[in-house]
C-alpha cells in the first residue's frame, strides 16, 4: 500500500543511483521512493538517532568515521539513514575528505548547536509534510508537534502551542505533563530526552529508535528492489 499512487513506481525506479548494495539512504531518497511523507514514529526515530550521532561526534569527533560537523541542514538529502539504524549528516563541502565549497553548493558554515537542532526540526517537519499541498496541513499528534515546535524555535512567546488538534484532549495525561517540563531545547541531549519520554519505557529508546530506523532502511530497500523488478 505504501507504493500506491500513479507516481510511485516511476519515482522509485529512478530514486536511487546505481544498482549495487547500499549501506545508507538519504532521507530524500526515502521520501521519493515512497512518494509519501514519513510517519510519526519514523520522525521521532530520525530525530533521536540524528541527535545521538551529532552528540557523539561533538563529544569525540576524531573517533567518528561518519563525522558530522556542526552546520545547518538545508535539505533531506543531507540526512543519511544507515543499514544498522544509525542516522548521520552527510559530509559537506569543506569536511574532511570532501571538496571545498564552490559555486552552487549549499554554503555550509559552522553554527551553534541550537541552530543545527532548529534546522533539523524544520527538515523533519518537511518530511512529515512531504507531498501535501501548500494550503493543506497535516494533523500531528500534540507531543510530536511540541517537539518540532521547540526544535524549530517556533513556540509562541507565552510558551503555548497552537491547539488545532481536535483529538488532543483524549491523549493528554500526566505523561504529557511530564514532557512539557522541557520548555526550551538547548542541546541534542534535550531532544533525545523528549524523544525517549515519548516511549512507555524511556530506557528502551536507544534500541527502539535504532530498530525503527533500521526497519526504515530495510523496507525502503525492499520497496526499491520490488519496484525495480516490476519495471
Amino acid at each position: 500500500s505504501s507504493a500506491s499512487g500513479s507516481g510511485a513506481p516511476a519515482a522509485a525506479a529512478g530514486g536511487l543511483d546505481g544498482g549495487g548494495p547500499r549501506d545508507s539512504l538519504s532521507l530524500e531518497e526515502i521520501l521519493r521512493l515512497y512518494n509519501q511523507p514519513i510517519n510519526e514514529e519514523q520522525a521521532w526515530a530520525v530525530c533521536y538517532q540524528c541527535c545521538g550521532s551529532l552528540r557523539a561526534a561533538a563529544r569525540d569527533p576524531r573517533s567518528r568515521p561518519r563525522r558530522a560537523p556542526r552546520r545547518r541542514l538545508e535539505a533531506p538529502a543531507q540526512i543519511r539513514v544507515w543499514k544498522d539504524g544509525t542516522v548521520t549528516l552527510a559530509p559537506g563541502p569543506g569536511d574532511p575528505g570532501e571538496p571545498p565549497p564552490g559555486a552552487g553548493t549549499l554554503g555550509y558554515s559552522h553554527c551553534t548547536e541550537t541552530e543545527v537542532i532548529e534546522s533539523l526540526g524544520i527538515i523533519i517537519y518537511k518530511a512529515l509534510d512531504y507531498g501535501l499541498k501548500e494550503n493543506e496541513e497535516r494533523e500531528l499528534s500534540p507531543p510530536l508537534e511540541q517537539l518540532i515546535d521547540h526544535m524549530a524555535n517556533t513556540v509562541e512567546a507565552d510558551g503555548s502551542n497552537d491547539e488545532g488538534y481536535e483529538a488532543a484532549d483524549e491523549v493528554i495525561d500526566e505523561e504529557d505533563d511530564e514532557k512539557r517540563k522541557i520548555s526550551i531545547i538547548r542541546s541534542y541531549k534535550d531532544v533525545m530526552k523528549l524523544c525517549a519520554a515519548h516511549l512507555p519505557t524511556q530506557s528502551e529508546a536507544p534500541n527502539h529508535y535504532q530498530a525503527v530506523c533500521r526497519a526504515l532502511f530495510a523496507e525502503t530497500m525492499e520497496l526499491h528492489t520490488f519496484l525495480s523488478k516490476i519495471k
Binding site: S1, N39, E118, I122, Y125, E139, A152, T154
Partner: peptide, 23 residues
Amino acid sequence: KEKSLYKIKPKHDSGIKAKISMK
C-alpha cells in the same frame, strides 16, 4: 502502533506549517 494514514486539515495561519514556512 500508529496508523499509516494521517489526517489533513486546512493550513492555518498560526499553525506549525505556517510558522515553519517563515523560518
